[in-house]
Design a protein around this nucleic acid. Structure first.
Lengths: 138, 138
DNA sequence: ATCAGTGCAAAAACTTTGCATTAAT
DNA sequence: ATTAATGCAAAGTTTTTGCACTGAT
């Protein structure tokens, strides 16, 4: 019987060829530790580390989020000129963005049906498609 | 015979209840002067004023872009954590964003067909939907 | 031993703000 | 006359960078 085993933080890092340092493991744990998808900003993730035993400097949080994104472990979502958000779900899927609280969350993927998409111009290919549904409280 | 008359910069401002100051008229001219839609950043618009007779300070460019957006004359498009882009086309329509040159352009609206869109959660309404197709040169 | 990763402080990039001056109504 | 808009410089925010130190291989 094949045992279903959750991906560990170390696996996650090594799958992208990244060294398992203490700081990366701590951040990975905060990101994928419970198997749930998460949307973080550098600041929110940094805050989260301050509650744990493994402290990570803010600069390292920034650098690590960038490294994780470039390695394909995270997806950067740009919804707000001021801050960058990072999503542990790296597939194309729509987001809700609450304009008042600046909160980003997944929108139900199955409820978005794109029947046709403009094709990339000559000499280009589509890298990703971001769909952000901006919400206002009513 | 009804004469078709292009909207003037002054009309554009007054339609939003904004005073026609020298600086606003100069920026409006750069934005809608030729009837073409345009995508600008604060910096690019500021650069454009430096070629003309009517100088506008950078702070005023920033403030004016914000005022125009809040008045509904422009639409702010967030594609890049670093910079804000503003589009003279304020309707919902898709964009191409060139990742390497950081250039934003319209994608053909008729080629985007959304068959179904997630509906807004309880207590919210959709303010706008941003579709950004990110391009990589191939 | 080697080279990547980290932390800190400093710098960079973009945007907003305070306040005195100027201009529109 | 009244009130809004502007310009400048200063400050604010977010993010990146330089460099010495630390740690993974």
């Amino acid at each position: 019987m094949m045992q279903e085993k959750r991906q560990t933080e170390a696996d996650w890092l090594s799958s992208a060829g990244l060294r398992p340092t203490r700081q990366r493991l701590a951040l990975a744990h905060l990101l994928i530790g419970d198997g749930q998808h998460r949307h973080v900003t550098a600041e929110s993730l940094y805050e989260a580390t301050r509650d744990g035993a493994d402290k990570v400097s803010l600069a390292t949080v920034y650098n690590t989020l960038r490294v994780f994104s470039e390695a394909g472990l995270l997806r950067e979502i740009t919804v707000n000129g001021a801050r960058s958000y990072f999503d542990t779900n790296v597939t194309n899927h729509p987001h809700f963005f609450w304009e008042d609280s600046e909160e980003l969350m997944d929108a139900p993927d199955e409820d978005l049906k794109i029947a046709q998409l403009p094709e990339a111009p000559e000499g280009a290919e589509i890298s990703k498609v971001d769909v952000v549904i901006r919400l206002r409280r009513s």
